[in-house]
């Protein structure tokens, strides 16, 4: 009985630790990530006119432009967020965000961008 109590107590502690670690690394909402990290260049409205664009040699993508955005596959968008513009032969001004976002968060951002452009690849 005593051994059983110890096991139960250990399981409780393990569960608490697991819950804590999951909460600590919880994915942020895609819209929140966008407005924190992406909007500085792509704009709070996603129109490519962020507060930083004044002196940029290459203007950021307008994420509300369905024609432009439908020309990019989800895989390309995922890759450019994670590895930066250079990864798909685009501007170095688009930095790699792979150290900031989890893969799950990047997938969330791809979905969010599709909502902004109201488009999908090829359509």
């Amino acid at each position: 009985m005593k051994v059983l109590k110890v096991i139960v107590a250990e399981l409780c502690v393990a569960s608490l630790l697991l819950a804590w670690s999951m909460a600590a690394s919880a994915a942020e909402k895609a819209a929140d990530n966008y407005h924190t990290y992406c909007a500085q260049c792509h704009g709070v409205k996603g129109n490519g006119k962020g507060v930083n664009v004044r002196d940029m040699s290459v203007q950021p993508r307008n994420h509300t432009d369905s024609k432009e955005m439908s020309a990019r596959s989800d895989d390309d968008i995922y890759k450019v967020i994670k590895e930066g513009g250079v990864a798909i032969n685009k501007s170095v001004l688009m930095p790699p965000w792979g150290d900031v976002f989890s893969d799950e968060e990047i997938h969330g951002l791809v979905t969010y961008l599709r909502e902004l452009c109201q488009c999908s690849y090829g359509k």
Binding site: N52, R54, M56
Partner: peptide, 21 residues
């Protein structure tokens, strides 16, 4: 700073020139 790393996008290198965030 600018061409190879793209940091000018967010940082000013002189007053009134560069990114602002």
């Amino acid at each position: 700073f600018d061409k190879f790393k793209g940091c000018l996008a967010c940082h000013e290198i002189e007053p009134g020139y560069g990114g602002l965030s």
